[in-house]
Amino acid sequence: MFTESAEMARMPPAASGDPFVPRIYCVDRIRRELSDTVTLEITPSQGPRPRYAPGQFNMLYAFGVGEVAISISGDCADDRTFVHTVRDVGAASRAITSLDVGAAIGVRGPFGTAWPVTDAEGSDIVIVAGGLGLAPLRPAIYHVLANRSRYGRIAILFGTRHPQDMLYRDELAAWRRNLDISVEVTVDHADRDWRGNVGVVPALIARASFDPHDTVALVCGPEIMMRFAVNALRDAGVAPDHIHLSMERNMKCAIGLCGHCQFGPQFVCKDGPVMRFDRIASLFAVREI
């Protein structure tokens, strides 16, 4: 019931056969983004890299430590590597952020639903990101920029804590120089050296220019920020079924068999992570769901 569009159709698993068995990839490049966050480019040690759609995720496995769900943050047009931006928040993510170039890493995936970038053609696009939530949105940004003429106005609205915590800083600056799109960054706190916006993402939504009756909004960030962002989008007149969110829950198996990632009747791993707001509206603000 969640598969009516091309992007929503689930992609085939990386490995045929047992979906619990990862494929071995090799770390090609590492880029330190923030003090606790790195971006890894990884390639399969054998065979082609599977196709993926913007918004999907992989299960990354650190040998002897464990597995963690990480969204793909690269450019789908690059068919050689998987790009993952990983923050050190636990044992497995710490092991992954500590890998060196040349190290082996296990990969299962890609899994999950995608941002509706094809369905959104012809509409204005509002991309709302908070903190590390910019990473799962980056493939969608690459896609809409590469296919600029297929969309109306494009706004990228990004909120983060502090100017020092800004993910993909150089890239954001490059996107800002593109006069054909609107890029607004806001921070929760800043000192006076910061000449940009101070405030929260909903304020950027209120200021952005888009046609609320023909806009597709893609939202990813901490859940509280997404709740505020959805309220601001709805205040602006965007319909609930035009708002798409990337949800986070504890994903262990990624294939709907382990039960951990349930969000009401949805399994975030297979019915998400990208979900249409109208379908989860009744659960969205329920505590501990």
Binding site: D36, R87, V89, G130, G131, L132, G159, T160, R161, D165, D188, H189, G199, V200, P202, A203, A206, G221, P222, I224, M225, F228, N231
Partner: peptide, 17 residues
Amino acid sequence: VKRLHATRLQVLNVYGK
């Protein structure tokens, strides 16, 4: 009211660990 909401969101420090 909007500014109050925004302030609440700001003090929650949602982007931090």
